[in-house]
Design a binder for these strands. Structure first.
Lengths: 344, 344
DNA sequence: GCGCCAATCCAAAGCGCTTTGGAACAAAGA
DNA sequence: TCTTTGTTCCAAAGCGCTTTGGATTGGCGC
């Protein structure tokens, strides 16, 4: 028999289903010897309870939902996605949870979350890539589905649980670092600025400039999907300008690779003619050098963020009234070979 | 009421649960007018059937499982993962399926698949990253859990469903292309060769060399995780050799970026001093140039492979006896700027 | 008016589990 | 001896759905 159920297992043991169930789920009212017998039999006959039946009876799914908008697919095809998923997955699996991914058409987002709630396939939702105004927060609160946001939504006033990196601080610090090196024309090659993290990074950049009385130049600020091609294209354009930047702040290491390619193609040298600082999500397949970092970078592991945010969510599910949990991670500034004093 | 169930819906409509259920599931024995009434009510009250209960009653989960080994995590943190998931997800979502991801410790792999079968959380499994000898195939066949392999397992003799790219052919052709350009010392910077795709690529490379009577040089062949750093490190070492390669075959565009960095660092020029052909999975965040490809490449979209392999799996689930389905995708050879005649 | 056939609907069983409310029994207290 | 208490077990209800088998109705031919 390739699969057995509780009834068969209990018959095999000459016990009632109740007792077997209690033995398996650690209830106290069962003799230790009996419990051991049950556990041994379950293992040796490799019995696992049917999750659907168990879920139906308990109301729990032992699964966490992640929902991705199809238009938003860059979020998924982004290398960051894999590292993030690896992080959360680590937490889930050691807690015995599955992860349920679903894609949804943009205009059906709200309906999809309602459906998830009704279908009962998950115990909670991990919300990622929040925009500045993020309707999912109010919706999930209304539905009473536990959730944690990876990131924040600037325009949201209601309380909610989140884990975020201090993006503003990181980019402010990076900008300061470049200013200290004497750079004045500093470009920002940002991610999509309807994304909250990109918005915050821009704030950090702008406030550092402002603190030194430097006016921001719109021609030095771009915002788009963080691809390699974007880095190349926008850098090439900027370098061709009459007043080209001497330093560039980049939103992602992928984009920074395109930036580097553009700098080389323009016959310039990275770290001498043009300084570059990139945000580095500490991706395993694209790690930023070992002893000598290739890029000076604001580093914040998206993988460990995933581990932590998943822990928060599981805790929120276990003890729903542990209130909104909020945590901020600091990015560290890694000094690499891509920055140097401003050319005179 | 945030969520309603069938009973409430049917009371609301003054119909029996049976009729409502039949109306919703498209059975013929219900009046069209009644059906319309039911569907309208379901939509307006946003009713969705509870998936656990439905699954329990029907034996179907409407979900597909993807299992990743934790040691194997590079598979996940690999940028390819995101594109692949985006592809399969597209198919799943338009068929109304969810995707269930789980991580598993290496030594618990078999037990985990048994548990998945017993728990009944999924209707089928998508097996990815097969090794040359792949125990999962026999196991899943034994369990009677429908599955399709993305890739193949060379040493597996039993029939099973798969979708694969012609890796051997692609690398043979790429090698031929370099040989035609006059290159003789051609290096292979391969992926992990216990992975079946890497093994096959090596075969293609070797057979092209052999056809021209060129002996393979072990010092020109490496195998490792396909990171950027690996490309840099191994290329730097090879270029420092006394008889350095004039051309390099690379397993992934990520690794190729490291290769390019190493070539630049050695003061050489890509496409003139050293030619490079890389395999290109057509990743959205790392697309290989538009009009002018950066790298000459064997291109095969992992995203469309995902779409197709998911379709195959869903079909296999619907009609289990449509037998083992097997499909081969050809990679196209894209000529870019990274190759040129062998330097004399 | 009667019987018959479709068409339409319904009551109830069952999917595999948890959990409530007791039963059975032994040991302890009166 | 009888009640009480605690331990260990069980029968049965219930989770929300599908689906079997049957009931009800209306229309039709005779």
């Amino acid at each position: 028999m390739v699969t057995m159920n509780l009834k068969e297992l209990s018959q095999h043991l000459s016990l009632s289903q109740t007792t077997v169930s209690r033995a398996l789920n650690g209830y106290p009212e069962v003799n230790e010897a009996t419990r051991r017998r049950v556990l041994d039999a379950a293992r040796s006959l490799n019995y696992s309870p049917n999750a659907r039946a168990k879920g139906l009876a308990t109301g729990r799914a032992f699964a966490i939902g992640h929902v991705l908008k199809v238009s938003h697919k860059q979020e998924m095809v982004n290398p960051i996605f894999g590292d993030f998923i690896a992080g959360v997955g680590e937490t889930y699996s050691s807690a015995g949870y599955d992860m349920v991914l679903s894609l949804v058409e943009d205009d059906k987002e709200a309906a999809h979350y309602r459906k998830i709630k009704a279908r009962g396939t998950v115990d909670g939702i991990l919300v990622s890539a929040p925009r500045m105004v993020e309707p999912r927060i109010a919706l999930l609160n209304e539905l009473g589905l536990p959730f944690v946001v990876h990131g924040r939504a600037s325009e949201e006033t209601a309380p909610y649980s989140w884990l975020d990196t201090n993006n503003t601080g990181a980019f402010q610090r990076a900008t300061d670092f470049l200013l200290d090196l004497g750079h004045v024309r500093i470009a920002l090659i940002n991610g999509p600025e309807n994304m909250d993290f990109a918005h915050r990074r821009r704030l950090g950049y702008l406030s550092a400039l402002q603190a030194r009385g430097i006016a921001a130049d719109p021609r030095l600020m771009t915002s788009d999907e963080m691809t390699e091609a974007y880095g190349f294209r926008t850098t090439s354009e900027m370098l061709a300008q009459d007043r080209a930047p001497t330093a560039i702040l980049v939103a992602s290491i992928i984009t920074a690779i395109g930036v580097r390619r553009a700098i080389a193609a323009a016959g310039l040298e990275l770290g001498r003619d043009v300084s570059v600082i990139t945000h580095d999500d500490d991706l395993s397949s694209l790690n930023n050098g070992q002893e000598v970092p290739i890029f000076t970078a604001t580093r914040s592991s998206v993988r460990s963020a995933g581990i932590r945010v998943a822990e928060m969510l599981l805790q929120l599910i276990d003890t729903p009234d542990c209130g909104p949990m909020q945590e901020m991670l600091e990015a560290e500034l890694i000094i690499g070979a891509s920055t140097g004093p401003a050319p005179s």
